[in-house]
Design a protein around this nucleic acid. Structure first.
Length: 265
DNA sequence: GACATATATGTGTTTACATCA
DNA sequence: TCTGATGTAAACACATATATG
């Protein structure tokens, strides 16, 4: 998510985005058939980040999901799941017996599932707890885990799969809401920052009109660039616009409202 | 009865893999 | 043997339907 040029500070754009720590997640799965990584879409480690800089520096948002691992898992799996709807329909009609058998074993307390084909399952508290715990461990399941959970909970693998899908959706929704709030706050902060910068720019322009800036400022007001560690002379050999010094007492131009750190020139 | 939530279903996309020319 | 095209299966996200409290 990138919001470029929200407030348009001169030629630089403001990038307002959500980032995430790319910390390596440890694979908690016991049956590491396929060194499964968690999908990067997972929001648990998203950390909001604001960038104030050139467009090319704007943050690249959540990367494409690494699906490879799931494919590998699926290809290795002895368990067939009816995830593809068309296939599912076909198979349900062809293998009705199998499906019915699954239904019968799906829930101990559902005696008359034949009566209502879409009677909604209500998970018991224990089942929910186990599923939640499992979800905390890993938000996606490989076929083996799915099967094991299904057996443990006396549910169909499909039900476990659906529960995880819906659970991921809920997590994402909640995270989106949190992110939205965060972005609003960031936006407000940046708006204020933009105002301040505009004001500062006006002041600098007015100073420049009156003469070279460095001639007007006491030496004590010049600071060293944290990046190149030199005091820029501004209008020396290059362009005066690339000045590397800033005025003490004001925040540096590229101020990160989140980290409260300035970006070096 | 309206509403929120949980569960289920349908659809489209992506990817790995197998097969074939 | 290598390579690109093609088909298939599996898993997912997402939207939506529907049962339930």
């Amino acid at each position: 998510m990138v919001f470029g040029n929200i407030h348009g500070v001169c030629n630089a754009s403001l990038g307002l985005g959500l980032g995430y720590n790319k910390e390596q997640e440890t694979c908690s799965q016991s049956d590491n058939l396929h060194e499964k990584k968690k999908p990067s879409l997972k929001y648990d480690h998203l950390v909001p980040c604001l960038t104030l800089g050139l467009p090319e520096e704007t943050f690249q948002s959540v990367t494409k999901i690494d699906r490879d691992v799931h494919r590998q898992a699926s290809s290795l799996s002895p368990v067939s799941s009816f995830s593809n709807s068309s296939v599912k329909k076909e198979r349900e009609s062809c293998y009705g017996e199998e499906v019915d058998a699954e239904r019968v074993s799906s829930r101990a307390c559902d005696d008359d599932e034949e009566a209502s084909p879409r009677k909604k399952l209500r998970l018991s508290k224990e089942q929910s707890i186990i599923l939640e715990d499992s979800f905390k461990e890993h938000s996606t399941l490989n076929p083996k885990q799915k099967q094991a959970l299904a057996e443990q909970l006396n549910l169909r693998p499909r039900q476990v799969e659906v529960w995880f899908q819906n659970r991921r959706a809920r997590t994402k929704l909640k995270q989106t809401e949190v992110d939205c709030e965060l972005l609003k706050k960031c936006c407000e902060t940046l708006t204020e920052e933009n105002k301040r910068l505009q004001k500062e720019l006006q002041e600098l322009k007015s100073l420049k009109l009156a003469g070279p800036l460095y001639m007007q400022l006491p030496a004590a007001t010049l600071t060293m660039c944290p990046s190149c560690e030199k005091i820029g002379s501004g209008g020396g050999g290059g362009g005066s616009s690339a000045s590397t010094f800033s005025i003490v007492g004001t925040r540096p131009p590229f101020y990160d409202p989140i980290t409260h750190q300035s970006t070096p020139c």
